[in-house]
Design a protein around this nucleic acid. Sequence first.
DNA 1: CTAGAACTTGACGCCAACGTCAAAGGCAAA
DNA 2: TTTGCCTTTGACGTTGGCGTCAAGTTCTAG
Lengths: 132, 132
Amino acid sequence: MRIGELADRACVSTRALRYYEEQGLLHSSRTAGGQRVYPQTAEDRVRLIRELYAAGLTSRMIATLLPAIDARHVGPELLGRLLEERARTTAKVAELQAAGQRLDVLIALATHPDSDSCPATLDQAAATSPAP
Amino acid sequence: MRIGELADRACVSTRALRYYEEQGLLHSSRTAGGQRVYPQTAEDRVRLIRELYAAGLTSRMIATLLPAIDARHVGPELLGRLLEERARTTAKVAELQAAGQRLDVLIALATHPDSDSCPATLDQAAATSPAP
DNA sequence: CTAGAACTTGACGCCAACGTCAAAGGCAAA
DNA sequence: TTTGCCTTTGACGTTGGCGTCAAGTTCTAG
């Protein structure tokens, strides 16, 4: 199939597909005229790439990872980087949850204007008065 | 105090302070020579700004929000936008947690090469084989 | 008074995954 | 063959919160 059909099937833009190829994530053969031709398996490939992006990985990381996944062998160094990524994800979740609590404090201030004391910091307020 | 001292106290760069002023988040008076002068309260102000950034808000949103916080009155429209932000934060947390599960699948594949079946998608694998 | 640290504005750089526009060529149906 | 959609490469734009020079000015300790 050509790029437009693959884009439709995998629900991505043609621009994204060319970008993936540019980053070495997706390969294609060409027609005599130079147009890209993909096998049917490319659709799953693109979905996998999208999931890896969704897992917070960068193009470079995915480019490193894909051959390992294909070979079904992830080396120790790569595993270490995956564990790092996992740790970062965990940390980001914690950060975002703290951010959510800060927003809760603001929302509480907005919906309960009864407390005339404005807390010095949002963190103090979050610690002393749990959000509703 | 001048910009360098405020930067040290609030643990931000002078560039950041000028940027905050440019965005209308932080005000300063000037010396005869044109140098910025801040009151002591500026330190808390900067910390508040940083917390709002940490809560995932943009400069524009913070610029809208700060006067409301100062006046201790958050209007209904602003409250609505805060609730939107809160919802986005919640959604991002969910996304990140899903991303973490996908990473767990990859890590599991790396540490347990016993299962010779490579799952079609990371999500399917996450659904059928919980991470260790 | 002077050295030199601190400060000023201005402006480009950055990062990442594409969006978007442009000019030109390929491909299939009638 | 012609029509017209599809595809090609190239290259600049986007988004945000600053980092990082650069060239010039101000403040302050001695």
